[in-house]
């Protein structure tokens, strides 16, 4: 059973009189544990696709099965539950809650899931340790560097042990070295079994993925699978 099965996906935005076809007859099959990069020019529909995969948006037409389950027909609460339990998001702009500490930000998904405070505390401490943030637990986002912020965001995205990790330009706001560090972190998580889909403008980063998808005008125009050997051949 594939983790993700998309077929005939259409997403049309209506702006006044004009219509934007953000996604056109998109079909995609992703197995559990895969590592995909999505690339393409600005406005080609990468973020729209990612939002759809993350159940933040609904297609106008088409099928979407996640872990064998048709998720397009779920109601708002059921979709929220799927997001909470199965999907993690990492954003370009981190999206940390400014008034909450790093630990509290990481604890948010657990809190929303109704996990008791004691268990929450233990899991957050463990996660902060895993991401090398144990001495930053009490810091607020504005007291952290960009790389640290994104690490907090990744810790938050994975604290519920999701099956699918979606990252929309996760290194877009970071310098090169920090970006590589974050990329390595995401790849480690993928090595641990999480399916990873990364939208990026960085060819180097895109090329690291075992499967590269290229989008243009709302269509998938290229779907390149490469063996680990290829990865080294195309730096």
């Amino acid at each position: 059973m594939a983790l993700i099965e998309l077929g005939g996906i259409e997403r049309i935005f209506t702006l006044g009189d004009s219509q934007v076809h953000a996604l056109q007859s998109v079909a995609l099959r992703v197995e559990a544990g895969e590592y995909l990069s999505v690339m393409g020019p600005s406005g080609s529909g990468k973020s729209t696709l990612l939002n759809l995969l993350g159940l933040l948006d609904r297609p106008n037409a088409g099928r979407y099965h996640l872990e064998g389950r048709d998720v397009t027909t779920l109601d708002a609460d059921e979709q929220a539950a799927v997001r909470r339990e199965r999907i993690g998001f990492v954003f370009q702009s981190f999206h940390l809650v400014a008034r909450l500490s790093a630990a509290e930000n990481v604890a948010l998904p657990l809190m929303l899931a109704g996990v008791p405070a004691a268990e929450r505390h233990a899991r957050v401490s463990a996660a902060l340790r895993d991401f090398g943030l144990e001495d930053r637990a009490g810091h607020r986002p504005d007291q952290l560097s960009g790389g640290q912020r994104q690490r907090v965001a990744i810790a938050r995205a994975t604290i519920m042990r999701p099956a699918l990790l979606l990252a929309d330009e996760p290194t877009g706001n970071l310098d090169r070295a920090t970006g590589q560090e974050v990329t390595r972190l995401l790849e480690e998580l993928n090595a641990g079994g999480v399916t990873l889909i990364v939208v990026t403008h960085d060819p180097a980063m895109g090329a690291r993925a075992r499967r590269c998808i290229r989008m243009e005008d709302g269509r998938i125009v290229d779907d390149l699978r490469q063996t680990p050997a290829d990865t080294f051949a195309n730096p």
Binding site: A81, V82, R83, R84, H95, A113
Partner: peptide, 16 residues
């Protein structure tokens, strides 16, 4: 607004 969007992405139900 951004915080509310984030909470939704993290799986908060509308009721929450």
């Amino acid at each position: 607004t951004a915080e509310i969007g984030l909470l939704k992405a993290l799986g908060a139900e509308p009721r929450t």
